[in-house]
Design a protein around this nucleic acid. Structure first.
Length: 748
DNA sequence: AGCACGCCGACT
DNA sequence: GTCGGCGTGCTC
């Protein structure tokens, strides 16, 4: 190449390129900030646009977060800028949603991209609605050599006078697999045609008349309707015992939002998201709401996401992740069972959905209603401080049918169960009476499996999970040992792995299966069912059990907390809590509160309508405030006691906490990193307290060693900047991860 | 989060 | 001699 030409080329390259527009694009990856990309001329990229961009050798989706500024400090030079590849055909992510992503990221101290990933959890949705492929009869004769098997004939018959249908549907009706259909399509006998997306979402009608409300319900509904009409941020606690009709009340608020043409969101704990709750909604509004939870089938998930984004879906009833859907016009949030610990997400982005929902309402300037029969101390403190409004709903029946709660003091010799048995004679007698009267009983034990611990009689060896500091739980139904923390399972060995003794294992302590065994022995004629989250056959089997109880095909139901949720069993008059103390061990900050909430709810299952109920709590500590409050039906006394204790120790809600979990596969490096963090802790600030490092209660989880540090600060102080400075001062070695948990709930 | 680049063991 | 393990580091 001639010198002159070469020079000319260089000169051309050096000429300042026309200032390409630059946009910031947030990627669903753990970067601290959005990346800059060039906006190709002619491609309109308003903030919120869903786009595809190149990233190293691959392509990823992202969301336009704003204008890029080449002069910004640390901005990437123009030369490194890559262009946005395309924009997806979708309404842009609303501004509120984008601000919410940033807010949650800052609050939880996670990279914004990780929060974005929750908001766009079905990236396939960006590509468009799911298009089903249907198959119809191709024109013309069958090609030569095409063998007409019986299955193939049936499929042709099915299509002879019908419209094209999806492969799965044809296969099901013809009694073969979809592979047969595809093979026929390959042979040119069937013709694939794209089918319009699945059924549209039914529209709930806010104008339908609601049920007749009691005067207090009507007044409460009116208050909420006013909040919705105001179209401003407000937070309201709706506090009322089971049977006070809270749901009907907040349905009226939803009706008002619908009439105002806005979207509404009902957040429920995952296990409360039952078909019944959706049916109940459908009865009120004439259509089922869109449902959103972690195991929604992917195609439905995709379509639901799109329908929310387009505004077609008016009401979502969902678990915590429903909070992050891109509502274009959310006008109301309801958080039912507000106190439920299940709202706290512990993995990935660690957040509390109830608290984030309040933030979302604030950003969107809309009302939020927190609903509970046993509100959390956090929410009560906010109500007392005047930050939240409060509506108390009295029991519609004036509390006349409160069950009689009896504490069984297991320390007393006459009340203690016989050896290797778990039911006190007192509870046994009550069960006998109840069954004799043709009524139903329920035994509650929040422990799955047969026995929580198995040990060798010969050498004392305990069967432990290889990945966690936890005992393996024997499950007799599945005839396996299980770790309830990491999913490890194994066969029960024939001989002790320690001493080799054969058949030397003894089960220690009860699980629901073992209680079922005892009950069957005591009442051989009773029809017994066990209800847990792992009942082998999954959610459908659980639903079936519930139906059988309702139909009185079951006399005695034994189960874990999945049983505590709002099923109405009219014939159920006795509830026995096998181990009321279970949740109190472990020294958890909220152990008392949680135990009260759970057992209160369980107790509420006894006696409905005209039948008085009886509740028996087996406990070793009948004198603790929790047990006394449960026996005396004195929720407020308990809460006051609990609140006072928290106030004195400056614990939440009268102080703030942040936890650092240091984890890694190598115990020594983890320990060193934890110690280093401990030394770098903000010891110089008297208003802060640092506890730890200490081994986390589950010192090894999924094969990772864990140390925990806890930071406590005064109520008004944001802990995030403190934690940020703290972490910045410490070098964390490779292979060690530090997980920040703002407002920790579980102390695992 | 991926994916590449980059240095040390068992195989065509 | 290469295939491949996963340890660090970068991606606008």
């Amino acid at each position: 190449m001639p010198e002159a030409a070469e020079f000319r080329l260089e000169a051309e390259d050096a000429r300042p390129a026309p200032a390409a527009r630059r946009v910031r694009v947030l990627l669903p990856l753990p970067f601290p900030e959005p990346f800059d990309y060039g906006a190709p001329p002619g491609l309109d990229l308003p903030p919120g646009s869903y786009v595809e961009v190149p990233l190293g050798p691959r392509r990823v989706f992202g969301v336009v977060w704003g204008e890029g500024d080449p002069a910004a400090p640390g901005a990437v030079p123009d030369a490194k800028l890559k262009p946005v590849l395309r924009r997806f055909d979708l309404p842009p992510m609303p501004e509120v949603s984008r601000r919410f992503v940033d807010w949650v990221a800052a609050y939880t101290m996670t990279p914004p991209g990780n929060v974005l990933r929750m908001a766009v959890s079905v990236s396939a949705a960006l590509e468009g609605p799911r298009v089903l492929t249907a198959y119809g009869r191709a024109d013309g004769d069958l090609p030569d050599g095409f063998k007409l098997s019986p299955q193939r004939r049936r499929i042709l018959d099915l299509l002879a006078d019908g419209p094209p249908r999806p492969a799965a549907e044809l296969a099901a009706e013809a009694g073969c697999t979809p592979a047969v259909v595809r093979a026929m399509a390959d042979a040119g006998v069937l013709l694939p045609v794209p089918l319009r997306s699945g059924p549209r979402f039914a529209v709930p009608d806010g104008a339908l008349p609601g049920p007749t409300l009691s005067p207090p319900q009507a007044a409460a509904a009116e208050t909420l309707r006013e909040k919705v009409a105001a179209g401003a941020y407000s937070a309201t606690l709706l506090d009322g015992v089971t049977g006070s009709g809270k749901t009907e009340v907040y349905f009226e608020a939803i009706a008002a939002a619908l009439r105002a043409g806005r979207q509404a969101l009902v957040l429920l704990p995952e296990i409360a998201l039952s078909p019944q709750s959706l049916d109940r909604f459908a009865r009120r509004f004439g259509a089922r709401p869109a449902e959103w939870h972690s195991d929604l089938p992917p195609p439905l998930r995709r379509n639901t996401w799109r329908a929310v984004a387009s505004g077609e879906v008016r009401v979502v009833v969902g678990a915590r992740s429903a909070l992050f859907l891109p509502y274009p016009d959310l006008g109301l949030i309801i958080v039912d069972e507000e106190h439920e610990p299940a709202f706290k997400q512990e993995e990935g982005v660690v957040y509390h959905a109830r608290d984030m929902a309040v933030a979302r309402a604030h950003l969107g300037r809309i009302p939020i209603v927190l609903v509970s029969a046993t509100p959390s101390l956090e929410t009560l403190a906010n109500a007392e401080a005047g930050r939240y409004g409060r509506i108390d709903l009295p029991d519609r029946h004036g509390g006349a049918e409160l069950p009689e709660v009896t504490l069984i003091d297991l320390r007393r010799p006459d009340a203690a169960p016989p050896p290797r048995h778990w039911l006190s004679p007192v509870l046994r007698d009550a069960l006998t009476e109840t069954l004799a009267a043709g009524e139903q009983a329920m035994l509650f034990l929040n422990r799955r499996g047969y026995a929580p611990l198995t040990l060798c009689r010969a050498c004392g060896h305990r069967l432990q999970c290889p990945n966690c500091t936890a005992w393996l739980v024997e499950h007799r139904l599945s005839r396996r040992l299980q770790c309830h923390h990491c999913g490890y399972t194994a066969r029960l060995p024939d001989e002790c792995p320690q001493c080799g003794a054969e058949g030397s294992f003894v089960a220690c302590g009860p699980g629901v299966e073992r209680v079922a065994e005892e009950v069957t022995e005591l009442f051989p004629d009773a029809r017994v069912a066990v209800l847990t989250s792992d009942t082998l056959l999954g959610p459908r089997a659980m639903q079936e059990t519930v139906e059988r109880v309702k139909a009185h095909e079951i006399d005695l139901l034994i189960g874990t907390q999945v049983m505590a949720k709002g099923h109405h069993f009219p014939l159920l008059t006795l509830v026995g809590v096998v181990d009321a103390d279970l949740g109190l061990s472990g020294g958890d900050l909220r152990a008392g509160e949680r135990t009260f909430q759970l057992l209160h709810q369980v107790a509420g299952r006894a006696g409905r309508e005209s039948r008085p109920g009886r509740v028996f709590l087996q406990t070793h500590m009948p004198d603790t405030p929790v047990m006394r409050a449960l026996a005396a039906h004195d929720r407020d006394a308990f809460l006051a006691h609990e609140a006072e204790a928290r106030r004195q120790t400056e614990m939440p809600p009268y102080g703030r906490l942040a936890a650092l979990i240091v984890s890694g596969e190598d115990e020594r490096t983890v320990e060193q990193a934890a110690l280093r963090l401990g030394r770098a802790a903000p010891h110089d600030r008297p208003e802060l307290t640092v506890l730890g490092p200490a081994p986390a209660p589950l010192a090894i989880l999924r094969g990772r060693h864990r140390r925990r540090l806890l930071l406590r600060g005064p109520k008004g102080l944001a802990l995030q900047p403190v934690v940020a400075d703290w972490l910045a001062a410490v070098e964390i070695p490779a292979g060690v991860r530090v997980q920040v948990d703002i407002d920790p709930y579980s102390f695992l």
